[in-house]
Design a protein around this nucleic acid. Structure first.
Lengths: 160, 160
DNA sequence: TATTGTTATACTCTATAACTATA
DNA sequence: TATAGTTATAGAGTATAACAATA
């Protein structure tokens, strides 16, 4: 239970953060330039496009956005752009269901080739097939672990 | 040269972005709560703390920030908080050199234990030593590749 | 009472363009 | 002319708290 990280850990942490930042930046630029979308908006559209039917706001938020109001805001922007619709849910009357429109699917289709090109050129080019599998495996474990963790606010960790 | 990614690639890409986002969020919360720092500010302080002496704005910006004005702004905030100083460079008279103060080092020291705790709890707990080495190796290659890439603006990639 | 979602609001971050000063 | 950095400013993203409506 040393109080600091091993050098390999520190190195892995920083390089992960840095490369993720670079990738995020590259991807944001492409989405903005070719489709006037942020990555968050792209994620929301991808989720809706992949879902069988409409999703509730809560289902949609999961893992993409960290506050309710943030999602309300983004969904409002997507709705104003005609890419999604919002309506009353069939079951629980409190819920709002969000559905992707044809224009939304078209926007995804418009943006996707360039997106694939960027991710391939930036992320995958220096990686072998094995690297990709290993990376996917490792990050899947990390993600599942993080999501299983208690919300982990700063409380309870304070020492002074 | 298929126009889409292999399923493993798509999966690796999305899970990388998602886990990086979760990690970034957790880390921002810790830094903000315990040290009133953003991750960018933390990175800048860490660089300055690790450097032998002062760094120029340009050296400091590298890989952390994507616009000159962004760095000017962040450096201004750090200076106002007393964590760094800015002065005229010794050689090139156009340059500004930035140096960390004692208060800046104290702030880093104050924040670091909690930071280590968060990264260990969120990122490293589900990973073996080998995983960490492999992850560091893969992401290092990705980072080096991205940094070697031409700035890669949206121009030249447009199809329609 | 707890949960779903929205609203109002304020704050931070980032980026673009115009500008100064030095090389 | 090109480079280092700042300023002004505008836009986007995000979060908190108060709120309404339903469970």
């Amino acid at each position: 239970m040393a109080d600091d990280l091993a050098p390999e850990q520190l190195r892995a942490y920083f390089v992960l953060m840095e490369s993720a930042s670079l990738l995020h930046h590259a991807v944001e630029q492409q989405l903005r330039a070719e489709g006037e979308l942020s990555y968050v908006q792209f994620q929301l559209l991808m989720r809706l496009a992949g879902a069988d039917g409409p999703l509730t706001m809560t289902e949609l938020a999961d893992g993409v956005v960290y506050s309710r109001s943030g999602l309300t805001h983004q969904a409002g922007l997507l709705e104003k752009a005609g890419l999604v619709t919002r309506g009353a849910g069939p079951g629980d009357q409190r819920s709002t269901v969000v559905e992707i429109t044809d224009a939304g699917r078209e926007r995804v289709a418009k943006v996707l080739p360039g997106h694939v090109e960027v991710t391939r050129g930036q992320l995958f080019e220096p990686l072998s097939g094995k690297d990709v599998r290993v990376l996917g495996d490792i990050m899947t474990r990390v993600r599942d672990h993080m999501r299983a963790q208690p919300p982990r606010s700063a409380a309870g960790r304070k020492r002074r």
